[in-house]
Amino acid sequence: MNEIYTLPLLISIATFILTTHITPGPTNIILLSSVLNFGYKKTLPFIIANIISYPLMMSLTAFGLGLFLIEHPTIMLILKISGIMYLCYMAWKIATNRSSYESQKNIQSKPFTFVQGLVYPFLNPKAWIVYTSIISIYVTSIDVRFFQIGIIVLFIFISMIITTYLWSFGGIALKKLLKDERFIKKLNITMAILLIISILPILF
């Protein structure tokens, strides 16, 4: 292992990747909202999709797709516009969700699907840039690059498991604590606004 990475460098990679994924961002805000409104079981397909999509995205980045996108501004612009529009749509779905209240009006929203969780991370140009940076910083040797890429992808996989379950636990805890449906409605609107704010780094 020392020939591939030193222990301090492994710790550095693990810390950077976990910090990048566990901090508040679009994925975690959507996840928290889904668990709060629909429960853990109905959110599980979305959780599994995210655990799959990010390591897959890193794998594609490592083999040149991320650099290709960065080197073609027009494609990145299309990706940026598509990503912003899609995240705005998700924010709208969160803000207008009625699954936890107005039950007397029989209004039932649906949780985000497996396909949505699998696709939307690929529409985030910031993620492509961050992942390309990770590859450029932490892939340090041509001779063992495949092993190094494998370790990075594994760390992202583990990081996504930790991240999704911690944020899911937060949603479960909120669901148990919050019984006032009017407050949940306001909380949904707040999370939708936070999701819109999280789009700002994509714009700039």
Score class of each variant (00 low, 15 high):
P24M: 07
P24T: 04
G25S: 10
G25T: 07
T27M: 14
I29R: 08
I30M: 13
S33R: 04
V35Q: 05
L36F: 07
L36W: 08
N37E: 00
N37K: 02
N37T: 09
F38D: 11
Y40D: 00
Y40M: 13
T43Q: 03
T43W: 06
F46E: 03
N50G: 12
N50M: 14
N50S: 13
I51D: 00
I52D: 06
L56P: 07
L56D: 10
L60K: 07
A62E: 01
A62C: 14
G64R: 01
G64I: 03
G66K: 00
I70P: 05
P73S: 05
I75Y: 10
M76T: 11
M76S: 12
M76K: 06
I78L: 15
L79C: 03
I81L: 13
I84F: 05
I84T: 07
M85R: 07
Y86L: 03
L87S: 04
C88R: 01
C88L: 15
A91L: 08
W92L: 12
K93F: 01
I94W: 05
A95G: 06
R98C: 09
S103L: 15
Q104M: 12
K105R: 13
N106P: 01
K110E: 15
K110H: 15
F112C: 11
F112S: 05
F112K: 11
F114T: 03
Q116N: 12
V119N: 09
P121R: 05
P121V: 02
P121L: 11
N124W: 02
A127E: 10
W128M: 02
V130W: 03
T132L: 14
V139S: 10
T140M: 12
S141K: 15
I142H: 13
I142T: 14
I142K: 11
F147M: 14
I149N: 06
I149R: 11
G150H: 01
G150V: 09
G150I: 02
V153C: 11
L154D: 08
F155G: 00
F155Y: 11
F155S: 02
M160V: 03
